[in-house]
Design a protein around this nucleic acid. Structure first.
Length: 516
RNA sequence: GGGCCCUUAGCUCAGCGGUAGAGCAGCGGCCUUUUAAGCCGUUGGCCGCGGGUUCAAAUCCCGCAGGGCCCA
């Protein structure tokens, strides 16, 4: 737990460190220097001389090389007239070896004012200790930043989840895997961009503040623009804007950015989350499938290092091709239901009641199929599986299947029991699209406040001509969860949404008097 | 939204009606190749917050706050 104001309250740790800070100042040292003395990055140094056989102690000492590296002090082992400390930077560790005989008397005195958590720079020759650990034999010590507060416990790290999320920096410092996970996230996002660019896609940016929130079914966040005196919505999806770009002549576009959905939090949901959406003129669902398999399997192999990765107690194979299953086949298989009976609306209703789905009488057969799928199949789809042939009611922006206009040419990709991606052969008939919006408006009338809103300007853009087009969204946070074996979305979002403590919670900004 | 669980020292955790504890960290000693260094000594607490029950509450009951897990 984090109590309001703790860091400012005097405590024995802070007081002791303030005292040391004063002593350093009294010695005439610049305690907050403007620049660190460094000749090498710590990681670079560790990597270059990691090999103990290629770089035995004699060879290292023989180099006649004096290095300066900076890092945060993680541990200190005092042994009278010699001291060992581990410095860390960017997840790498290098040991500093301080020996009274190696240092000036003044430098040795300042060493007594060193605490765990401080940033320092050490200068001296490289060496290897008796046990073979690469170390800097310190001749000079420069203080770069004095930590006034103590680090979490060095062995167990920071365990309290609440504090880990609220003070992520402490989590990153003291739990090594956490830093690694977020470094992997960066590499994944960067590899995704590279992959898309190699496929000829251009990255674009479209509005995050929209007058009509479209492209998905979800409750939006509302905000207000003062000068224009109009309400705006944080986007729930960029879809309708990216499609306008296809109308405008872009062949292939993608966007990686945040979407906002005003819904509950869970292990798989954060109100703001990162999505990649992309559209390719002239393509259809099959092309989207091929691209998705290529992307996901190459990320597993090239970024993480294997096409088979652990997922909790299980293993997931990311080798292409992924399994393909229609929604009805998935319901039949995982619900152990007779596949033929799913063609019969009354039977579907009976199954839905048996599965304790709510408001069965009010819902259409297509909606119930979606519910049954969620109920029976979704969580069990651990290995990558494309689910196809979605009911039209659930898919207002998708072309129907050839020869069956109750279903649409859409897939969702499930991995680890989670929806990872959602793709369509995009509906490009403006008349049909208008009808679908009408149906959504009717839904909304009858109380479904997640039904889509009519975006007339989007319809107008379609009327100017929208080519056949494949489109898809991939949830980046969930992708990172899968590739880093993280059970919660909060473990792959640096600063997940948290409710403030009541003591810290002021008046809601939205309710405050307008300061302008 | 419903259910279950958690909140004790800076951190990791015991204690579950009868004097608030341990390890790490801190402080003071010893120790010139340590690896969670070791050894000796020692400081540190609104036991999340507010009510109640009781001779007595960290412990039992109720409410509130924050968090976690499961279900919808």
């Amino acid at each position: 737990m984090v109590r309001a104001g703790v860091p400012m309250q005097p405590n024995q740790y802070r007081d002791a460190r303030l005292d040391k800070l004063e002593k350093l100042k009294a010695l005439g040292l610049d305690v907050w220097p403007r620049k660190a003395q460094r000749t090498h990055g710590l990681a670079e140094l560790a990597a270059t001389y990691a090999d103990a056989e290629a770089w035995p102690n004699e060879k290292l000492e023989g180099l006649g090389l004096s290095v300066s590296v900076m890092g945060r002090v993680l541990t200190i082992r005092e042994m009278g007239k010699s001291v060992f400390a581990h410095l860390t930077e960017n997840g790498e560790k290098v040991q500093a070896f301080f020996r009274m005989n190696d240092m000036s008397e003044a430098a040795w005195e300042t060493l007594k004012l060193l605490d765990m958590g401080d940033f320092i720079s050490v200068t001296g020759p490289l060496m290897r200790t008796k046990t073979g650990e690469l170390s800097v034999r310190v001749k000079e010590l420069q203080f770069l930043s004095k930590a006034l507060l103590p680090l979490p416990e060095k062995w167990h790290g920071l365990q309290d989840k609440e504090q880990r999320y609220r003070q992520r920096y402490l989590d990153l410092i003291s739990n090594g895997d956490v830093l690694k996970t977020f470094q992997t996230r960066s590499r994944i996002v960067s590899a995704v961009r590279r992959f898309m660019e190699e496929q000829g896609y251009l990255e674009v940016e479209t509005p995050m503040m929209q007058p009509i929130p479209g492209g998905a079914t979800a409750r939006p966040f509302i905000t207000h623009h003062n000068a224009l005196d109009m309400d705006l919505y944080l986007r729930i999806a960029p879809e309708l804007y990216l499609k306008r770009l296809i109308v405008g002549g872009f062949e292939k576009v993608f966007e990686i950015n945040r979407n906002f959905r005003n819904e509950g939090l869970s292990q798989r949901h954060n109100p703001e989350f990162t999505m990649m959406e992309f559209y390719a003129a002239g393509q259809d669902l099959r092309d989207m499938m091929a691209l998705t398999e290529g992307l996901v399997s190459s990320l597993a192999k090239d970024v993480v290092g294997s096409e088979t990765l652990p997922w909790g107690e299980q293993e997931i194979s990311y080798a292409a091709p992924f399994r393909r299953l229609t929604m009805k086949d998935a319901i039949a298989e995982y619900g152990h239901l007779d596949r033929h009976l799913l063609e019969d609306g009354d039977c579907v209703r009976t199954f839905a009641k048996a599965a304790h789905i709510e408001d069965v009488e009010k819902k259409t057969v297509g909606t119930l199929l979606g519910d049954l799928f969620e109920h029976y199949a979704e969580k069990q789809l651990i290995q990558p599986t494309f689910i196809t042939d979605y009911p039209i009611e659930l898919s207002p922006l998708t072309k129907t299947l050839e020869g069956d206009d109750r279903f649409v040419d859409r897939f969702e990709l499930f991995i680890g029991g989670m929806e990872l991606a959602n793709a369509y052969s995009e509906l490009n008939d403006p008349i049909d699209q208008m009808g679908r919006f009408q149906a959504q408006m009717d839904e909304r009338e009858s109380g479904n406040d997640e039904a889509m809103l009519l975006d007339q300007d989007f319809i107008t853009s379609l009327e100017h001509g929208f080519p056949p087009c494949g489109g898809e969204g991939i949830g980046i946070d969930r992708l990172v969860m899968l590739l880093t074996n993280s059970a919660s979305i909060r473990d792959v979002i640096l600063f997940p949404l948290m409710r403030p403590h009541s003591a810290e919670r002021g008046e809601s900004p939205a309710k405050q008097e307008d300061a302008t």
